[in-house]
Design a protein around this nucleic acid. Sequence first.
DNA 1: AAAAAAGATTTGATTGTCAAACTAATTTAT
DNA 2: ATAAATTAGTTTGACAATCAAATCTTTTTT
Lengths: 139, 139
Amino acid sequence: MKYLAEMTNELLLFFNGFSSWESSVIRSSDLKVSEAHAIEVLGQHGKMNMKSLAQKLGVTTGTTTVTVDRLEKKDYARRESSSEDRRVNLIVLTEKGMKAFEEHHQYHLQLTEQMLSVLSDTEIEQLLNALKKINAETF
Amino acid sequence: MKYLAEMTNELLLFFNGFSSWESSVIRSSDLKVSEAHAIEVLGQHGKMNMKSLAQKLGVTTGTTTVTVDRLEKKDYARRESSSEDRRVNLIVLTEKGMKAFEEHHQYHLQLTEQMLSVLSDTEIEQLLNALKKINAETF
DNA sequence: AAAAAAGATTTGATTGTCAAACTAATTTAT
DNA sequence: ATAAATTAGTTTGACAATCAAATCTTTTTT
């Protein structure tokens, strides 16, 4: 394939750029990285049990227990016990957690805006199109 | 902006997809995450001193000292002292380190290929173009 | 009812990280 | 030229992040 090496290179730059942007945003908040990630997942997908949360975070449930403990202690989230299955804990963001999520999401919107500012309208549509296809098929 | 929310969403999916792919590839090797990251940087940019390596990894030099210690112990990299400045350590990949880098890079190429397989030639060129612009201006 | 499975937590260990103190070498300013 | 400041890197001490395996409780299956 013609552009394979070049594309790989640009993709790596892109991902690394995003990663370091993300950690610097998190580090400027009073949240730890693991806590911020959990809040992001909960904010995006809403209430869910420990197992799903662990899966979406890509870590074990043991790790997630610790993270949620800390989020509860800091009042960003709380456990609700499920009425259907008494083994299950549903994790839900508190007011404070929602607010933190919204704030973080604003940063994401700003970064997106900044990235898109160097593209024309047509280029933006093309990029969106490409990302949708790749996300649907690859991830 | 018209597509801001949608684009942000797709970008987050894209980054998360890449992140979990990356960690699963690393976890299937005998390298730890921090070690793999260091090898990636050294493989891509070649010999460099501790400070630059720390910078590219986005961590402190103290953290990098520990990482390089482990890479040396496992024979993936070694420190060379600079002839110009005796404070400086230049970190360089060993044969084994180079091989590990090549192997990891192959995985990246494969992922890129898989992602691009859903796009037409024109779309690939457009995507490459957009990424180049964004990387140059934003990151 | 007994056995197996599932959701979550706990435990013990390793890995990843930082800030601050420190060592050694180089540069700058007097 | 020599004292002061700076720079590269390491060490230390403390948390934060994570996993695998053992455990507890509650379903589900047999």
